[in-house]
């Protein structure tokens, strides 16, 4: 498989959220706005790309029996790095006093550790392939996940607060608050996956 194909495979054909339905917890919890979805997606992409690279480099030296705990330690280390970086860089409150991106994502940043996509790619791809291919596979899956989160986030933000990425598009009286609350997350994701299934069949 060419490197380009590996990269696009994770993005479209095996999109982690829409096709494989992995990582549903963060994709429901952090998509209350497009910006939050994008932030969560990029944090996951960082971890996915680097964990795939690190695991591809070390997999030959790890005994098969302790492979999963070893992978988890590598992933947890990267997640801690992301957590510390985000608490340093995206931790200032917004202009209208809204909580910072770091506060809004909250415990879902450390929870990237248990995101099935990360361990899934490590086990299914990185442990058997070359470092560069693994890095691209991780980045492809991560960007696919980022795209999916941003899309769901945009829909929820548009319906719930009439804006996309903070840009006002609809008047305030047409806001349907339920879409930025918990039930809206389930319903929007359900319909988006149904739409993807429909498009795949044609």
């Amino acid at each position: 498989m060419s490197l380009m194909k590996i990269f696009t495979n994770g993005f479209i054909k095996e999109n982690p959220l829409f096709v494989l339905v992995l990582g549903t917890c963060p994709s429901l919890a952090t998509t209350t706005s497009a910006t939050n979805g994008l932030g969560m997606g990029l944090a996951t992409t960082f971890v996915l790309g680097l964990s795939n690279l690190a695991i591809a480099l070390t997999a030959r030296h790890i005994p098969d029996k302790v492979r999963i705990p070893a992978f988890i330690v590598i992933i947890a280390t990267l997640v801690t790095i992301v957590d510390l970086l985000m608490s340093a860089w995206v931790n200032s409150p917004g202009p209208n006093g809204e909580p910072s991106l770091y506060d809004q994502l909250g415990i879902f940043i450390p929870l990237i550790v248990v995101n099935c996509i990360v361990l899934g790619r490590a086990e299914a791809f990185a442990s058997k392939n070359k470092p560069i291919a693994s890095l691209l596979d991780g980045l492809g899956s991560g960007l696919g996940f980022t795209f999916a989160l941003s899309l769901v986030g945009s829909i929820r933000e548009l319906l719930g607060s009439g804006s996309v990425f903070g840009l006002n598009l609809l008047p305030a009286q047409s806001n349907i608050l339920i879409f930025i609350l918990a039930p809206g997350g389930f319903i929007v994701l359900g319909y988006v996956i149904a739409l993807v299934n429909r498009l795949k069949r044609t």
Binding site: V21, F186, L189, G190, L195, N197, R198, R201
Partner: peptide, 13 residues
Amino acid sequence: GLKGVPIALITAG
């Protein structure tokens, strides 16, 4: 189109 995961998510909603 709604069979499987989509209908489960909508019900959960």
